[in-house]
Structures are given as structure tokens and as C-alpha cells.
Amino acid sequence: MRELIGKPAPDGPDLALTIAIWGGAALVAGSFLALLGDLLWHGAARVSWDFLVMAPEHAGKTGGIGPILASTVAILAVALLAALPLGLATAIWLSNFTRGGSLLARQVNLSLDVLAGVPSIVFGLFGNAFFSVVLGMGFSIAAGGLTLACMILPIFIRSVESGLSAVPDEWRRGAAALGLSQAAALRHILLPAAAPAISAGMMLGIGRALAETAALIFTSGYVDRMPESLLDSGRALAVHIYDLSMNVTGGDQAAYASALVLIVLLLAINSVAQTLTGRFLARRISQP
């Protein structure tokens, strides 16, 4: 399509537009690189193995982020453990069992679309009222993880759903024509074929959960000790960055280093998701 209009026309307005568009793109790219460069520049000096494993001291100004990483992983694990089975089941149901578009299917779709847009602070309020108070979990890793599970369900379900609906219909028909049950078709053909999309959706969900702060402040809390159970409060990495930069004078160094760790984790997860999606689009179906 570019070739089609690739020849820059000589007249003034066209040239101005070209300059404006390249300028806009450069501005966006420049801001992105400035942000990334700043984190790298200030954060790289502090990041070391010790930083990753040591406990924070002096409210995080010195020491490391060991317990914080542990809490982050625990919160993430709770979120995935709750969201993956529920999300997988819902996505399968939406893509394979509701072709007519029942009332429940419309309800589920509406719920997912709205949940995807609900502000994270509102999830925080909900998580606090429901998981922490009503279910009596208090400020805990379990409450935080379950709140995050509600948040990542929409994005995960939509990826799995699109993965399943991209599986060629001829395999569905082939399986039905052989008298296979839906369960057998799912287990042997549809789910393996959609596996890359399922993993990509999982990665997107992890990315979203790792980045989350507002929903966790009032659910999993601030405590920066090593958690001993899922009912202990635990401070996530994103919350740690917030606390260091807002509530701890002189915490900027450690905040930079923590932010760098978080960004590197997210970039790695994003690359995995991209690769998986790319592989899925290329229809390289896994062989058992």
C-alpha cells in the first residue's frame, strides 16, 4: 500500500504533512527511548544479584527486593491459578458451545467487555470489600491475587477465544463426522492447535498483572517482609516502586533499580507472547 502513494508529491501541503507525521512519530519514539534510557542509566548501577535476593533495609533505601519478588510471584501464582481454569472453561464454552448466541453468552460477553474497562482502582475497592473484608482474607497475597484474577480474565479469555475460533473448521467437521465427542475433539485437536494462542493470552495476563499497582494497595498491602503463607500481606514489585518514590525520601535509586527489574521482566514476557502469537499466525501447529 505504501508503494501506491510512496512518491512524495512536490506541493507544499503534502510536504508539510509528511514532516508533521515523521515529526509526530519521532516524538513518540523519542519519549519512549528517553523513558527507557533514563531507567537503564539510573537503574543499572544498583541492579545486582544481591539486590535481587536481599531483603530491603531502611524502608527499601538500601538492601534488595528479595521478599518483594517472592510476594510478586506468589500473587501472580494465585491470580493465574484462579484465572486460567475459569478463563479456559469460559473461552471454550463461548467458542464451542454457544454458536446460537444464547442469553447467557450475551451476558458473559458484556461482562467481559465492561470488566476490561473498569479502572484498576475500582477493582481495588471491590477486592478490599469482597475478598479482604467479606471473605475475611484481610490484606493478603490471596486477596490480591484473586483481585488480579478478576482483572486479567477478560484479556485471557479473548485471546483463547480468538485462538480457538482460528482453528480450521474442517477439523471440527472432520472430528464430528468421525463421531467424536466434543470433549475428544477439544482434547486431541482444538486445544493443542490453539496452544500457542492460549500461552500468548497467559503471557498477556501475566504482563497485565505484573504491571498492576492500584488494585493491590488495598488488597495485598504494603508489608515488605518475606511472606510465610498466602494469608500474609505481601508487597508487589509495582507497589514497592510506588512506595519508594512517594513515601521514602532518598528512595529514588532503589526505585529506579526496581523499575528496571520490572521493565526487563515485562519486556521478556512481551517477547515470548509476540513469538507465540507469530507462531500461531504462521499456523505451525504443534505435533504431539
Binding site: E170, R173, G174, A176
Partner: peptide, 15 residues
């Protein structure tokens, strides 16, 4: 469907 098998226009072996 087991007793009435079906062959499609485009070959559709499973992956």
C-alpha cells in the same frame, strides 16, 4: 456418524 462416514472436498487430516 460412526456408521455413516464422511470424506470432504479438501483433505482434512488432523494435525
Amino acid at each position: 456418524r460412526r456408521k455413516i462416514g464422511m470424506i470432504f472436498q479438501k483433505p482434512n487430516p488432523f494435525p
